[in-house]
């Protein structure tokens, strides 16, 4: 098996995303795009995870593209932030355009997973979506704990805790004020939902992202094969598991014929050891191999 690595500068408006397409000499009908997590790490990823990921999938007959978000690695442009409910769908679509396979499969990690979910509904020819540790809540980078506490703590405890961390310099720091505004909006939303819960159908998981649920519902409705993969030690899995008590559980039941849930030991989100990285790749590869060819159903 020979694989050809082809570097590409993918046009994206006035910018260019750096990508590498790993192309096997014999390709099947499904091509894969690896959507990275939101962060500073660039295409090879730690321990060359994305490098190995792409080559293993290519060796199994799946042409695979890995790329950098704008403002990361060799891509041009500037990244403002990574916010789970503002996925970079147009960037991912640009990367997707490199693949000329009949079916395109999105494999995303964390922010990349949420981007894949947001794309699947609006993009033609998506043959499957593999979601590695997708958070079920919405938050901006760095706001994860604070936004969880908005639901968990009473308003008084939450505000008291926030005031303790406040310093005079915070009040003249625009970025800090913006963050307070963001977290504050989550608090208001959380308390409003808790207050009005008696007038609606009971929802034991009001903190679960509406976007996450509606996008997953779209995947279930359209029958797009979906893999949800979590590590049992990570917070994302604990929240996913808790969320199954609410609407998510009903959705997963409805989608049981197309949604596969895999839980592996350790943390799929961090996937920091080589063993963990290889395990995640193996699980994704197994799932990909089981996908039907387009039009076979």
């Amino acid at each position: 098996m020979t694989i050809v690595d082809r570097p590409v500068f993918v046009p994206f408006g006035d910018e260019a995303l750096f990508a590498i397409a790993s192309e096997p000499d014999t390709a099947g009908p499904h091509g894969v795009v690896l959507l990275p997590a939101g962060g500073h790490t660039f295409t090879p990823q730690g321990n060359r995870w994305a490098f190995d990921f792409a080559h293993r999938l290519a060796a199994a007959g799946f042409p695979t593209v890995r790329f950098d978000w704008q403002g990361i690695g060799d891509s041009t442009g500037v990244v403002e932030t990574f916010t789970l409910h503002q996925p970079a769908t147009t960037e991912a679509e640009a990367a997707l355009s490199i693949l000329d396979t009949e079916s395109r499969v999105l494999v995303g990690q964390c922010y990349g997973a949420r981007t894949a979910m947001a794309m699947a509904d609006r993009t033609e020819g998506i043959g499957g979506v593999a979601l590695l540790a997708p958070p079920v809540r919405d938050f901006a980078r760095g706001d994860g704990t604070a936004t969880r506490q908005a639901y968990e703590l009473s308003t008084r405890d939450f505000v008291t805790q926030g005031l303790r961390r406040l310093s005079p310099s915070t009040l003249i720091d625009r970025a800090q004020l913006e963050r307070i505004g963001r977290v504050g909006r989550t608090l208001v939303r959380a308390k409003w939902r808790q207050l009005t819960a008696r007038f609606r159908a009971p929802d034991p998981t009001p903190w679960v992202s509406e976007a996450f649920l509606s996008q997953l519902e779209g995947l279930v409705r359209s029958g797009v094969p979906t893999l949800l993969l979590y590590g049992e030690e990570e917070n994302d899995y604990k929240e996913f598991d808790e969320a199954r008590a609410g609407k998510l559980g009903e959705l997963l039941e409805r989608g049981s014929s197309t949604v596969t849930i895999e839980v592996v030991p350790g943390s799929a989100h961090a996937a920091e050891t080589v063993e963990m990285q290889q395990l995640v790749v193996s699980k994704v590869e197994e799932w990909l191999v089981g996908l039907e060819a387009p039009g076979a159903a």
Binding site: M1, D5, F9, H55, Q278, E285
Partner: peptide, 29 residues
């Protein structure tokens, strides 16, 4: 089970180029 990484032969494809008013950037092996 974790599968061992298969021994693969990876070759370099054609280089990629992007151009701006100031510079030309080429990525290749």
């Amino acid at each position: 089970m974790t599968k061992p990484t298969r021994r693969l032969e990876v070759a370099g494809g054609p280089a990629a180029t992007r151009e701006t008013a100031e510079l030309v950037e080429t990525a290749g092996f």
